[in-house]
Computed example of a mutant assay.
Amino acid sequence: MHPMTRVSLALAVCAGLAACAGPAREVRVSQGPAIEGQAWRLVGTSSGDKVPGSGAGSATLEFKRDRFSLSGPCNQHTGGYQRSGTEIRFGGEGRQIASTMRACPGELMVRESSLLSAMSQPLELVFEGPYLSLVAADGASWRFDSRAEQPSAEGVDRIVQIAGQRAPCTGVAGGLCLQYRDQPGAPWQYLHGEIEGFEWQMGVEYVLRIREYGVANPPADASARRWMLLEVLDRSRP
């Protein structure tokens, strides 16, 4: 066979194969499970921090289109994000994360700063059933749950500041009550009763995470609520 004939035949075969193969198909990279349209509750960290599921000190992450919002552990945060497969970047396209400037107890600010610092770098999305973890390059991680927290009748979590001095009040044996407030600088209020599990020391100011329970039919000289200590967030001597 003449050499030119062999070349022409080869070209014809190649053209035929290309025609059989049809048009080139677009190759798409799987984005993995969807993260939009649900509230992700922070339920754990690799550092072992105690994370309340709701109330004071809790955090919820939500995604909507190209924006995210993070509520807690102290402030409100929002900004853009970009996702590529299992990698996510918060504050995408040079957009910064905007945050409120609420004053919070030191321990909560440390937790919040740690999470925001991690969100300034690319993070890996790890899915496990209803859970989503944000994993940093150094292995630090924050675990979120997409399931709604089950309602509980066991009380409500609060963060309160306790004064280093008791004050005269009525309805309490001895006439001296603990003083508390919900925000730094707010007026002190009287707590008619003690905080279960809490050992108060004169001259020391505390920031506590407590659980408040209602008391059905309390005596006339007693409080209609009961407080139980969950965590001492901060202590200082003014």
Rank of each mutant, 00 (worst) to 15 (best):
residue 112 E to S: 01
residue 103 A to V: 13
residue 144 F to C: 00
residue 99 S to K: 02
residue 99 S to H: 00
residue 110 V to D: 14
residue 114 S to L: 11
residue 117 S to R: 06
residue 115 L to N: 02
residue 129 G to Y: 07
residue 124 E to A: 15
residue 155 G to L: 10
residue 104 C to E: 03
residue 120 S to H: 08
residue 113 S to G: 07
residue 134 L to D: 00
residue 135 V to E: 10
residue 158 R to E: 15
residue 145 D to N: 02
residue 102 R to N: 12
residue 155 G to T: 10
residue 149 E to L: 15
residue 139 G to M: 01
residue 124 E to N: 11
residue 161 Q to L: 12
residue 153 A to W: 14
residue 138 D to E: 04
residue 155 G to N: 06
residue 133 S to N: 00
residue 161 Q to S: 14
residue 101 M to P: 09
residue 105 P to W: 00
residue 106 G to V: 13
residue 119 M to W: 02
residue 146 S to T: 11
residue 108 L to W: 08
residue 127 F to P: 06
residue 145 D to V: 07
residue 121 Q to T: 12
residue 159 I to M: 14
residue 139 G to S: 00
residue 153 A to T: 09
residue 143 R to M: 10
residue 125 L to K: 03
residue 127 F to R: 06
residue 161 Q to V: 04
residue 108 L to H: 02
residue 102 R to T: 12
residue 110 V to R: 15
residue 127 F to G: 07
residue 106 G to L: 15
residue 141 S to H: 05
residue 126 V to W: 10
residue 144 F to A: 06
residue 142 W to K: 03
residue 140 A to V: 06
residue 122 P to W: 00
residue 148 A to E: 09
residue 131 Y to R: 10
residue 117 S to I: 03
residue 115 L to V: 10
residue 149 E to C: 02
residue 155 G to K: 05
residue 107 E to R: 10
residue 106 G to H: 08
residue 117 S to N: 09
residue 105 P to C: 01
residue 147 R to F: 09
residue 138 D to F: 12
residue 154 E to P: 11
residue 105 P to E: 09
residue 140 A to G: 12
residue 137 A to P: 03
residue 154 E to G: 13
residue 110 V to F: 08
